[in-house]
Amino acid sequence: MVKIHGLIKEYPKGPQALKGVDLTVGDGQIVALIGPSGAGKSTLIRCINRLIDPTEGSIEFNGTEMTSLSTRALRTSRRTIGMIFQEYALVERLSVMENVLSGQLGYVGFWKSARRQFPQDVVENALKLLKRVGLSEYVDTRADALSGGQRQRVGIARALVQQPQLLLVDEPTASLDPKTARQIMRLIVELVRERSLSAIINIHDVQLAKMFTERIVGLRDGVIVYDGAPADLDHAALTAIYGEEDWEADTDSGEPAAAEVGSGE
């Protein structure tokens, strides 16, 4: 599905964000990407759909080399990659339905989209998805009238209405309370499994990552330092990813001290 090789990203000012990342994600696999803030998680997934242009390296998606695509071909590839954001990234002044339908923009011509004319099957699919995420009553509600959890559900519906093969998920729960966070994670994982998609999920909450995914990749300072099953993520692995900390003295909150450890620069 996705083959990343030797990926390097340098920002004009500042150090290398990614220092040669190799990562392969198979069909139907759900990968959690963990690591301290500043480790390059967001940069990595944004390189895959080229919201950020990588400096060096190759990214193969379904056999297409993403790094050398023309604008038009990039749009075609982006259609099959859905993305979910930390701050939901909804257009707040558009209605829920308009936000969801905007997931189809890559398929619809400019004038049709400007007049909000989408094919009938798309509209039906959008309404079905809204029902699935539990927002049937909010079709014409403006997005800024929703709660955080509801907004993220709209974000999920927007990503899925694209009929993607791959889902890029960037800190989907970081702005949510613990209960909503679990519900949203469960929903995402369920939907990904239902449709047998692949997913790469950036997440700073190690417990959630262990709970919902089958493979965990740890990133630190732009380098992959752990790649394995959740069960093998032990004291040594956590130290490798986040730095020294008394990992056994875990409180019951379910929130490891990962966030406080912060960037290990």
Partner: peptide
């Protein structure tokens, strides 16, 4: 910037991004 990134990520063109992400934010 976030809603604009999100719209671009769906494969929308620049013109479509303008209509769906810029205009609604700028209107008020």
């Amino acid at each position: 910037r976030e809603p604009i990134e999100a719209t671009l990520a769906t494969g929308a063109s620049r013109a479509q991004t303008f209509v769906y992400a810029y205009i609604p934010q700028l209107m008020p």
